[in-house]
């Protein structure tokens, strides 16, 4: 399927914003798909990490409605494998931060079952809250 996208100033602005937040130059991505092929969370994602990269390159703010960057576990497999030396994990974090800074959380702490909360180690809660609540 071919989709024609006309880039406007606001698209470039979004790309710039994500690059600034992540400290990574998304434009360097050559769409090789290594990140997608290495990602342990792929099955749970709605777009692949490389598609996420492409949407950021194209300044498509709609990427913020995808699940991929929330499902990312910050395992840094893509980080060590990207042939262009980009860190897609940082791009995912930037996308999370855009949402969290709009006060849109991914998880609701009060929805965690008390029985489950009792079992979970502190490390899991601290990490999840840092990644998924703002």
């Amino acid at each position: 399927m071919v989709r024609k996208i006309k880039l406007q100033a606001k698209n470039r602005e979004f790309t710039r914003k994500i690059s600034e937040l992540s400290g990574e130059v998304a434009m360097l991505c050559e769409q090789c798909g290594t990140c997608a092929g290495s990602c342990p969370m792929l099955a749970e994602m709605d777009i692949t990490p490389s598609q996420m990269m492409r949407l950021v390159q194209l300044g498509q703010e709609a990427v913020l409605e995808n699940k991929t960057f929330w499902v990312c576990a910050s395992c840094y497999t893509c980080t060590v494998r990207c042939p262009r030396g980009i860190d897609p994990a940082k791009i995912a974090e930037a996308l999370r931060q855009v949402k969290l800074r709009q006060a849109i959380d991914y998880i609701r702490i009060d929805e965690i079952e008390p029985e489950e909360a009792k079992k979970l180690p502190a490390i899991a809660l601290v990490a999840a809250f840092r990644k998924m609540t703002g």
Partner: peptide, 13 residues
Amino acid sequence: PEVFTQLYPELYR
């Protein structure tokens, strides 16, 4: 220790 994860999970923020 679990009383905190159960009653005040936001503590872990």
